[in-house]
Structure formats: C-alpha cells, structure tokens
Design a protein around this nucleic acid. Structure first.
Lengths: 143, 143
DNA sequence: CAACAGATTAGAACCATTCTAATGTATGAG
DNA sequence: CTCATACATTAGAATGGTTCTAATCTGTTG
C-alpha cells in the first residue's frame, strides 16, 4: 500500500477526508482545487491565478466558486490570507507561524520560517484591545 | 513674530513653501489638503475620509484630486502609504521609521515608534533581491 | 499680461471582488 | 436505491475603491 500512497485515487480520498473533517462537502470543485493547493509544497495563489491554473488543467470551475472556496478554506484554517498588496489578495497554503518576503513588481511571495524571525518590543495595545497577530512583510526589490 | 507662528496666513505660507520645495505647485487644493494633513499631529487617512473632511470644511475638491494629491505627496516623501487592508489604502503623515497597530473592524491605525520595536533574524533575501523595507502590522481586536 | 505647462474636474472606465437567484448535486432517511 | 432537502455552483450583474480621459482652469514665467 505504501507504494500507492501518491496515486490519484488515494490523493482524492485523502482530500475528501480532509474536506469532510473541515465540515466542507467534498464537491468536485473543492476536491479539484484542494488537489492543486495541497498536493505538494507550500503555495501562494490569488483567486485569478488559481482560476487560470485549474482552467488550464481542463477543469471547469467558475471564478465565483474559486473565491468562495478560497474563503471557505481560509475559514476552515486550511489557508491563510496574506495582505501585502492593495491591488489583490493572496492566499497561502502554509498556515503555520511564518512571515514573508514580498516582491511587489512580480507579485511574488516567499515564506520566512517563523523560527527564523523575531519581533521584540511590541508595546501593549491601547486599553480594550488585544493582539490578534503580528505580521511582518519584508518588501524586496530586484537589485 | 513668534506669536504669529500659527496664524492662518503663516501656515499657508509655510505650506506653500513646503510644497514648492517638493516640486509641487501650491495650488488651492494642495494647500488646503496639506493644511489638513500637516497641521497638527500625525494622521492616518484614506482618500475618502480626507475627501469627506475637506468637503465638510466647505472646501470644494474633487475625489480625483484627493487621489492625485495623496499619491503626489507620497512620491514627494510627505506621506507614506500603509497597506493593511485589502479593501482600502491608508496614508500616514508620519514618514519616519515606525510600525502600526491595526484595528480592522474600525479601520483604525495607531503608530508604534520605530525605536520601540525591533525585528531580528530576517534572512538574506534570495539572490538578486535586496530589502527595501520591513513592515510590521500588529493586528488587534476589541477584547 | 500672454502663453504655456501643469493641475483640476466630472464622469466614464476599470478591475478585483461580492452578490443574486436560478440550476445542480451530495447526502441521509426511508 | 430514490427522493427530498440542504447545500454548492454558476453566469452575469452589481459594487466599491481607484484610475483614466479629455475638457477646462490656473500658476508661473517671460
């Protein structure tokens, strides 16, 4: 069985289970999108880039569904939304503690492991407010 | 003369000079907007909030001009654009080294002095890239 | 003051995203 | 297995912040 661990069937089964665990019905569209997103390494996508990708793969999914799915996955904790660009939203398959390099010109994000980076000296927030998350964006340029 | 340092005339004169130094013609609209932005303490505005404010002050400036002016001021180094919300852009009159608390629900930004906070362990960017700026956003919620 | 470069403006256009309401589909009970 | 139902998907319209256009206006310089 170990040899078959990466077969298409098996992947679909795993994906289906994962979606169900998150309280999401494993519809054709969600399984296909999850397949692209969670197959291999960590990824950063926009709604449009993901829609292009799945369309080019010959799968028909509407852009509205891509948006819906990205938000549902985010709410389910399978994705994390990254706000670095006023023009568009990115979604990151790495939901763990980490930060980003961002190359604006090319719309490219690169993960920085959470262990690597540390932020010290954050003051207490004003009374009545609590810290939800600390985001670090290292904006980079081509030299 | 010291007593008159804050008179309206003097402020306008100062503003005018400042705009000219930045290579911007001191038009009525730019002087009025600069007056609102740079009069007192540090401020965080959106195009719409600034347009509302100046309109309520009885000054007629088009929204397009507010956008143009915010961008020109930013390019001139008088303002800094802050990207924290996918829905809208903020502009900060504090152009020095500092970071932000952000209360998304209310669209509120609060400065964190640059001396207070420190980010350690940023890895070298991938070859060919150089660090342009490190932004820290401390996302907060009402307790 | 004339002339020109640059600025302002209303309104249209743009584009990412969200909404709508009509159609399709996974699921669990029977 | 089938049906009913709740949930999903979809095309296309709507939204909302922002930018563009091209006509008009205004600082500035000679």
């Amino acid at each position: 069985m170990a040899k078959a661990a990466r077969s298409a069937k098996n992947l679909t089964a795993q994906t289906t289970a994962r979606l169900r665990q998150s309280g999401l019905r494993p519809t054709r569209q969600r399984v296909e999108l999850a397949g692209l997103l969670f197959d291999d390494c960590d990824r950063h996508v926009t709604a449009e880039s993901l829609h292009d990708e799945i369309t080019k793969a010959g799968v028909k999914v509407s852009l509205a569904t891509v948006y819906n799915t990205l938000h549902q996955f985010t709410q389910a904790g399978l994705l994390r939304q990254v706000i670095v660009d006023a023009a568009r939203s990115y979604f990151d398959t790495n939901t763990g503690d980490h930060q980003h390099f961002f190359l604006e010109k090319e719309g490219m994000l690169i993960d920085i492991p959470g262990e690597a980076i540390s932020v010290a000296g954050v003051p207490n927030p004003p009374p009545g407010l609590t810290v939800d998350r600390v985001d670090v964006v290292v904006r980079v340029k081509r030299a």
